[in-house]
């Protein structure tokens, strides 16, 4: 425990911020205590999720978009998530390679995270790290997901604005733009738009959006960019700001934050319920014996559970 850490964090010390993120990622007691004391200071930052297939140019796009927001004087944090090796648990996090322009800017903070076994494009602690950055006082937090394909809908839970990146030439367009991705995007970006087929991809997205039987209040725009040259970035930044204005005008942002807080409550309660139940079960003198009997097939797990943790709630909770 470093008693000074939180105080330094609150004074705006970036090294304390970085160290606290490590505590949160590692789930240390200090990390947990800090999350609790920081919680009330969260909810101010705008969060933007960026998702898309590998090779779509996500890092370059993040680099450019961040530079555009920097021109507005906004303080920025960027979280880049890359996969951990399922075999060794190690990871190579190389998104910074494409973010050269931001590396020396004192108002930009970039943190690379390994997915550490989580699926869905983020790591288990991405949401918590987002809160730490939010509490630190960043205006905008960009989250770049693992580019594993189309499975990263997780990002919606954490980010209030979701950008879905597509590129021409990644196989059959319709195949690449899978259902599920369409529902989460607040804006669609067709990057590498100087390659042939960009217009076709844009049209396909628009067509598929128009097929939605329940048109949402917000019509997601489709923006063409060439991130390596900065083309289309201003328009993308404008669309993101428009989405912010939309969220504010309709009080959607408050609703989103409210939902997040309730989800956090639910997570905490689940963890506590599980913990307190485990504690009670483990404390019983007959636990080892009953477990052995289940193992040998002498009694069934339901019966053992009824004896270890009597529970008179509804059936579907009692008998999963």
């Amino acid at each position: 425990m470093d008693p000074e850490l939180l105080a330094r964090f609150e004074r705006g010390d970036r090294r304390a911020l970085a160290r606290l993120i490590t505590h949160v990622e590692d789930g240390t007691p200090q990390g947990r205590a800090a999350l609790r004391s920081l919680y009330r200071a969260t909810g101010k930052a705008r969060s933007i999720g960026i998702t898309g297939p590998p090779g779509a140019g996500k890092s370059t796009l993040v680099d450019q978009l961040a530079a555009a927001f920097r021109k507005d004087g906004l303080k920025l944090a960027i979280i880049c998530v890359d996969p951990s090796s399922p075999f060794t648990g190690g990871a190579i996090l190389a998104d910074r390679v494409r973010m050269k322009h931001l590396q020396e800017d004192p108002d930009v903070f970039i943190r690379s995270m390994a997915s550490r076994g989580a699926l869905g494009g983020l790591s288990r602690t991405t949401g918590a790290v987002l809160k730490v950055l939010d509490a630190f006082g960043f205006d905008v937090i960009l989250i770049e997901t693992v580019g594993v394909g189309q499975g990263e809908v997780e990002v919606v839970r954490e980010a209030e604005t979701c950008l879905v990146i597509e590129v021409p030439g990644l196989g059959d367009g319709i195949q690449a733009i899978k259902a599920g991705i369409l529902e989460i995007g607040h804006a669609f970006v067709v990057n590498k738009a100087d390659n042939p087929g960009a217009d076709r991809v844009s049209e396909q997205i628009l067509t598929m959006l128009s097929l939605n039987p329940n048109p949402p209040e917000w019509q997601p725009p489709v923006v063409q960019t060439v991130a390596t040259r900065g083309t289309g970035i201003d328009e993308l930044a404008r669309q993101v700001r428009a989405h912010w204005a939309h969220l504010d005008a309709k009080s959607l942002r408050h609703r989103h934050l409210g939902q997040r807080r309730v989800a956090d409550l639910s997570d905490i309660l689940k963890a506590r319920a599980l913990g307190s139940a485990s504690q009670r079960v483990l404390a019983r003198p007959d636990f080892t014996e009953l477990r052995r009997q289940v193992e040998l097939g002498q009694i069934d797990p339901y019966e053992a559970a009824d004896r270890l943790l009597p529970f008179d709630g509804p059936d579907e909770w009692r008998l999963p």
Binding site: G55, S59, T60, I92, A94, V97, R98, K100, T228, R229
Partner: peptide, 10 residues
């Protein structure tokens, strides 16, 4: 012409 940065490959 702009400057080029490559994607890191391992």
């Amino acid at each position: 012409y702009g400057e080029y940065t490559e994607e890191a490959t391992f």
